[in-house]
Design a binder for these strands. Structure first.
Length: 256
DNA sequence: ATGGCTTATTGTATAAGA
């Protein structure tokens, strides 16, 4: 079934709901995965999204994290969090839509290479890899959409030399990303020709967006079974130009 | 140059993001 899917870290759905509604209206995606909703489920705007034509599954918490899947088609088999990883941070939600297993993930940032948060990030990635191995057996048609907090290659970073030794680009993080690909997943963005210096996140500070000082850290990975169905993949910078934008912008994939 | 913005919090400074 032909579908348009997207992922977007909104940095507070409470603040960004108008942007999300406008983007849904303008782009009419079948599925939109959100990260950093930063709200408890009781505050999640199910009714407003329903009016816009979208069912939703959400798991959130106050202040931090929170993930959601919005869909114009029915969601089934909704799962909160990874079954093999006890986590008090709400970072994973999964559902089956039109026969495709959709996993929406907000991978930890890691803060700094010598931080406990970095250790948590690496444990988290290891658990994700183990879980996906079993999910791919159950669901050969699978997509992993989200904020990975990893720039897979130097070309995904505006200034690789300046970022040496920092998070998002470290060899260990990139190996963990490669280990996901080794499961039989593909970076859908790179299946197509793309402009140089294509990024999905820009720092709010130092006029990062205007100077295109960004990183490509939001990704849509697709399983082997879906690879040949991919038609287009792109980054939509339009919402990043709005007033009071999220620091991330949507990444979009269309499949046949 | 270890900051620069932005968000949320029983806030008026702090933590976290990336």
């Amino acid at each position: 079934m032909a579908m348009k899917l997207a992922t977007w870290n909104v940095n507070s759905l409470n603040v960004r709901l108008p942007h999300v509604l406008d983007w849904l209206s303008d782009n009419q995606p079948d599925v939109l995965c959100l990260q950093e909703t930063k709200q408890e489920d009781s505050k999640f705007p199910y009714a407003v999204l329903k009016e816009a034509g979208y069912e939703a599954a959400h798991i959130g918490q106050k202040t931090y994290n929170g993930v959601a899947i919005l869909s114009r088609h029915p969601l089934s088999g909704i799962q909160h969090n990874m079954p093999n990883f006890i986590d008090d941070q709400q970072r994973v939600i999964a559902a089956t839509i039109a026969g495709v297993r959709i996993i929406c993930a907000y991978i930890p940032n890691g803060q700094a290479l010598d931080s406990d948060k970095y250790k948590y990030k690496m444990r988290w990635l290891s658990a994700l890899n183990a879980w996906l191995k079993t999910e791919l057996i159950l669901h050969p048609q699978l997509m992993l959409l989200g904020d990975y907090n990893i720039a897979p290659e130097d070309r995904d970073c505006h200034d690789p030399a300046a970022w040496v030794g920092q998070i998002l680009v470290s060899p260990a993080e990139r190996l963990a990303f490669q280990a996901l690909l080794d499961l039989g997943l593909h970076d859908s963005f790179r299946l197509f020709d793309q402009a140089e210096k294509s990024f999905s996140w820009w720092d709010y500070r130092m006029m990062g967006f205007r100077r295109n000082f960004g990183m490509r850290i939001d990704h849509i990975l697709v399983s082997d079974a879906l690879k040949s169905t991919c038609i287009t993949a792109r980054i939509d910078k339009t919402p990043r130009k709005l007033e009071r934008p999220s620091d991330h912008t949507p990444v979009v994939l269309e499949v046949a």
